[in-house]
Simulated assay, not measured.
Amino acid sequence: MLESRLRDLLSTQLEIIEDGIELIKIEQYLPSSLGTRSFIDILAKDRRGRWVLIELKRSDAAARQAIHEIHKYVEAVKSHLGARDDEIRAIIVSTEWKELIVPFSRFFHDTPISIIGIKLTVDDAGNLCFGMQI
């Protein structure tokens, strides 16, 4: 299954991640004064009104980019939407964690924002299954 298909499917089933997450937009563009392009896979809000940035990865090769992208998206949300660190959550959802676990662990310990990782699986019928929280 392609990452875009997985993103679209997940966006209709955000309760797999957490109850109460409300979809704001898929592929939300956020401008940056530095000229970088920021397209958040899934932008949502949680029950407490915090911005939830969901970055989705489908392969180990793509997962290597996840931490860099989350850094960029967090700064764009702070700049463009005026959010503070305590108003932002990041969720990295990946079907593969081999290449991602070490940089994710470092980011988890170093960042002031709330971040979780989720291993997602897709069954043979194309259904999403919550694997585990990292």
Rank of each mutant, 00 (worst) to 15 (best):
96 E>P: 08
16 I>L: 13
116 I>E: 12
13 Q>S: 14
29 Y>K: 14
128 L>H: 13
21 I>K: 01
38 S>R: 11
6 L>C: 08
42 I>F: 01
80 H>K: 15
108 F>E: 15
102 V>Q: 06
82 G>M: 05
115 I>D: 05
79 S>L: 14
131 G>N: 04
70 I>Q: 04
4 S>P: 00
7 R>Y: 02
67 I>V: 15
120 L>Y: 02
38 S>K: 09
61 A>T: 06
2 L>T: 13
33 S>I: 13
76 A>K: 08
69 E>D: 15
118 I>F: 01
49 G>E: 00
130 F>I: 03
129 C>R: 00
117 G>T: 00
98 K>N: 08
24 I>R: 07
101 I>M: 06
25 K>G: 07
73 Y>T: 02
94 S>T: 12
73 Y>S: 05
26 I>G: 08
78 K>T: 05
59 S>H: 10
120 L>W: 03
11 S>G: 13
44 A>C: 02
89 R>G: 12
76 A>N: 14
107 F>Q: 09
90 A>D: 07
91 I>W: 12
113 I>S: 07
87 E>I: 08
31 P>H: 14
104 F>W: 14
134 I>M: 12
54 I>Y: 02
2 L>W: 11
8 D>G: 03
58 R>Y: 08
84 R>C: 03
14 L>K: 07
81 L>P: 09
114 S>H: 12
7 R>H: 07
6 L>A: 15
49 G>A: 01
59 S>T: 15
103 P>K: 05
70 I>N: 02
110 D>H: 15
84 R>K: 14
133 Q>G: 03
62 A>K: 04
3 E>S: 10
61 A>W: 01
2 L>M: 08
27 E>G: 08
79 S>F: 15
74 V>W: 09
46 D>F: 02
105 S>W: 14
101 I>W: 01
100 L>W: 08
102 V>H: 04
3 E>I: 09
28 Q>H: 11
3 E>H: 11
81 L>T: 11
70 I>P: 06
4 S>K: 00
95 T>N: 00
87 E>K: 05
115 I>P: 05
4 S>F: 00
45 K>N: 00
10 L>C: 03
103 P>V: 00
46 D>N: 10
17 I>T: 05
29 Y>P: 15
76 A>T: 04
54 I>V: 13
50 R>N: 06
85 D>M: 02
89 R>K: 15
22 E>K: 10
26 I>D: 12
13 Q>F: 05
98 K>F: 01
121 T>R: 04
105 S>C: 06
114 S>E: 15
18 E>I: 07
72 K>L: 09
116 I>S: 14
50 R>F: 01
56 L>W: 04
61 A>M: 02
91 I>Y: 11
23 L>H: 04
51 W>A: 13
49 G>T: 00
128 L>V: 12
55 E>D: 12
124 D>F: 12
77 V>R: 09
45 K>G: 00
60 D>N: 11
88 I>T: 01
36 T>P: 08
30 L>D: 12
62 A>S: 13
115 I>S: 07
124 D>M: 12
20 G>N: 04
65 Q>M: 07
105 S>I: 03
84 R>Y: 12
102 V>E: 10
79 S>N: 14
42 I>L: 05
31 P>V: 09
91 I>Q: 04
32 S>M: 14
82 G>N: 09
80 H>C: 14
83 A>M: 02
59 S>K: 11
71 H>I: 07
70 I>G: 04
55 E>N: 07
133 Q>S: 05
124 D>I: 11
49 G>L: 00
